[in-house]
Amino acid sequence: MKQWYCSVCHETFNGENKPTTCEVCHADDRMIMNMEEVPQSLEQVRDLARKKLKGICAAYPSCDGSFDKICQREAYGKPIGLGGVGQGLSFRANAEALADIQLNMSVLGNHFEPDTSCSFIGIDLKFPVLSSSTAGVQKYNDALDETMFCTSVLKGSKEAGTIGLRGDTWFYTPEDNPSLNAMKICDGYGIPIFKPRSQDVLKKLIEKAENYGCKAVGVDLDGCGSTIMALHGQPVFKKNVKEIEELVKFTALPFIAKGIMIPDEAQKCADAGASVIAVSNHGGRVMDSTPGVAAILPLIRKKLGNSVTITADGGVRTGYDVLKMLALGADAVFLGRDIIRAAVGAGALGVQLHLEHIKKTLKKAMFMTGTKNVKMADSRIIFKHN
C-alpha cells in the first residue's frame, strides 16, 4: 500500500493508485506526490520545478535575466514567460543594482541572536519578506491549476510565518478570480493586488476582498503597461491621483500603491492616502530600460521620510539581498520569481521551504553585519566607495 501526499494542504492518503484529487482541498493530481518523493530540501524543490517548467525556466542558481538564460532568449511572438520585456534590460538592472551593493562585515561586539520579526501594516510577521503578487502560472506548461497555485502561495507563506500577496492577469475576471478564490479558501489571510482595471471593476473586487477578510488591498499601477489584458477584453488604465484617492476612501483596508519608480509619484500616492508604497518595476516585465529598484529605493525613502511604509521587489534572491533592500529604505521585501518556482515544484511545502531558507540567510546576514533587529538595518551596514 502506497502513501500519497497533497503538497497544498499536507494531507496524506493510502492507496495503490495515485488519487485524482485531494479529498480535503480538492487539488488535482498535479499537486499530489508519492510520500517517498516529497522533497526535503529546497534544492529538491527546484529540481522538481525545473522539470515542470522545461523550456520556460531552468531554475538557474543565478536568476539575473542574462541573454544566456532560457527565459530571456529572443523569442519573437511568444509569451514573455518568466523573462523580462524587450531586451531584459530592466530585469538585469534589478539584479545588477543589488549586486553592486556591498555589506560591511562586523565581527566585534557582544554575541547576539538576530531578531527578524516585524510588523507590516499591523500584521505581525516572523521576518519582513512577503510572497509577491505573481499570476498566470497556470499557463506555464499547464504545470498546476491557478487557484491551487494561489492557495499554495498563501498557505506556504503563512506556514513560514509571513503573508502572501496575490496578483491579477488576463484570464482572471471579477466573477472568477483565482486570487480571491484562494483568499476565500485561506480565510482571507492574504493581500490581493489588482491590475489597474476600471474604477467600477476595482471597487467590485475590493468589496469581495473585504468580504473574505483580506488584510489589505492594492493596485499594480505599473500594470497599465500590460497589453495582454486589453487583448483579452480586460482593459487596464493609467490612474490619476484623484482615482487613487477614490479607491483609498472606498475601502477601510490598508491600500498598497504598487509599481512606483519616481519619488514625486511616490509622494503623490502617499498624499492620496496609500498606506504602502511598493517600489517596483514589475520585475522588468512592463517596460525595458528602467533603473534597478535598489537604485531608486533610497531616493523614494528620502522623499517620503518615515511617513509611510515602503516595500521593494526586483532581483531579490537571497537573505543578503533582503538586508540590502532594508538598509536602502524598505520596511519589507517582496519575492516573485523564486516563489513561483517553489510553488510549481512542491506547492505550499515548496513555498514554506523557500521562505524559511530566506529567513535563515537573512539572520546570517544580520549577524555578520551587527544588525540586531530589522529596524537597525540602515546605510551604516552598506560599504561606501570613496
Rank of each mutant, 00 (worst) to 15 (best):
C6T: 12
C9Q: 05
H10C: 05
G15D: 13
E16L: 14
A27V: 12
M31K: 07
R46I: 12
A49I: 10
K51I: 14
K51W: 02
A59P: 03
S62K: 13
D68H: 06
K69H: 07
Q72D: 12
A75H: 13
I80W: 00
G84C: 02
L89D: 14
V107F: 14
P114H: 00
S117P: 06
S117H: 10
I121L: 09
G122N: 05
V129E: 08
S132Q: 04
V137N: 00
N141A: 05
L144M: 15
T151S: 10
A160R: 01
G161M: 09
I163G: 01
F171D: 14
Y172F: 14
N181C: 04
M183D: 07
M183S: 15
K184V: 14
D187W: 01
P192G: 09
S198E: 04
S198L: 01
Q199R: 11
V201N: 02
V201P: 06
L205P: 07
K208Y: 08
Y212P: 08
K215I: 13
K215E: 12
K215F: 06
G218E: 10
V219Y: 02
D222H: 01
G223A: 14
G223F: 03
G223M: 04
C224R: 07
H232Y: 07
P235K: 00
F237K: 07
K242H: 10
K242L: 10
E246Q: 14
E246D: 15
L247F: 06
V248A: 00
L253G: 02
A257V: 11
I260P: 07
P263T: 09
D264E: 15
A266P: 10
A266K: 03
A274Q: 10
V276C: 02
H282F: 13
G283Y: 03
M287I: 14
D288F: 05
D288T: 12
D288Y: 06
G292Y: 06
V293T: 15
L297Y: 02
I300T: 07
G305V: 11
D313F: 00
G319H: 08
L323V: 14
M325R: 00
A327T: 11
A330L: 04
D331H: 13
G336N: 07
I340D: 06
L349M: 06
Q352A: 06
K360W: 02
L362T: 11
K364M: 13
M366T: 08
M368L: 14
V374K: 02
D378F: 00
I381Y: 07
K384N: 14
